[in-house]
């Protein structure tokens, strides 16, 4: 199978995020960057479907430094990388989807993989947008993925249950936690990755109609309340949940 995985470089989830002076973007000095954790499921899954004569291509849109995250994917076992290079990654998912889609048109893949969301902007948008631009089927939040011949069978998570669906190839999925255990790059993998092909293509972003007006932190959470200990506390807990929190 020829597999393409779209990868995003995101701030490490442990990074303390600061907002820059414009008030509309994060301040990226001192930020540690990583491969979007959901994309790790995507890479790992693609590798299991590659087969002996297939290939896994990593496609990323981002600044030049994104080559580091692409190398990580190559170290996990992917075969080659393509960086669509821009100065600053777009905040509008439609721009991202348009740029990725135009590169994908030339790749003639069988399977296309995305993380279900980027842990930075949490839009959950790029995968489905790319699929509709390319006019191919895509199912999101996939937790099991099987391919037989030219048909893919997909299990996806829905509110309170599971849904099973079929799609013809070429098709795409977005990956949800539970799909697999993401592979860590091994030391021999890291060494081999240095010699794998990685192409850098500067690209122009199309116009966007999305404007970020303001970024702000969520308000501090109010302190918790201890109503008592052990079984004796249960009546009081129920009273507080019913009368104060009004959740019961």
């Amino acid at each position: 199978m020829k597999c393409v995985v779209c990868l995003k470089r995101v701030p490490d989830t442990g990074t303390r995020i600061k907002i820059d002076s414009s008030g509309t973007a994060i301040d990226d000095t001192d930020v540690e960057w990583i491969v979007n954790p959901y994309d790790e499921f995507a890479i790992t899954e693609a590798l299991t479907h590659r087969g002996s004569d297939g290939e896994v291509i990593i496609l990323a849109l981002g600044p030049e430094e994104t080559t580091k995250e692409i190398r990580t994917a190559l170290a996990m076992g992917a075969d080659q990388g393509i960086l669509l290079q821009v100065q600053r990654p777009p905040t509008d998912p439609l721009q991202t989807a348009q740029v990725l889609a135009s590169a994908l048109k030339e790749l003639e893949f069988d399977l296309l993989f995305f993380g279900c969301r980027g842990v930075d902007d949490d839009n959950c948008a790029v995968g489905p947008m790319v699929a509709s631009i390319l006019d191919i089927p895509l199912l999101s939040d996939v937790i099991q993925f099987d391919v037989e011949g030219s048909k893919a069978t997909v299990q996806r998570e829905t509110e309170g249950g599971h849904e099973i669906g079929n799609m013809p190839l070429p098709c795409g999925i977005t990956t949800q936690k539970g799909l697999n255990e993401p592979k860590l790059p091994s030391l021999p993998g890291i060494m081999k990755a240095k010699k794998k092909p990685l192409e850098i293509r500067p690209v122009e972003l199309p116009d966007s109609s999305l404007e970020i007006v303001e970024m702000s932190f969520p308000p501090d959470r109010p302190p918790g309340k201890i109503v008592g200990e052990g079984a004796d506390a249960v009546p009081e807990l129920i009273r507080v949940l019913q009368e104060e929190a009004k959740v019961l």
Binding site: I34, K68, A75, P185, L187, I190
Partner: peptide, 17 residues
């Protein structure tokens, strides 16, 4: 160098997981 540091990321995750 950069390669050592990228290996460090692997080690750190392996140890913590």
């Amino acid at each position: 160098n950069e390669d050592h540091q990228s290996f460090r990321q692997t080690c750190r995750r392996f140890v913590s997981e």
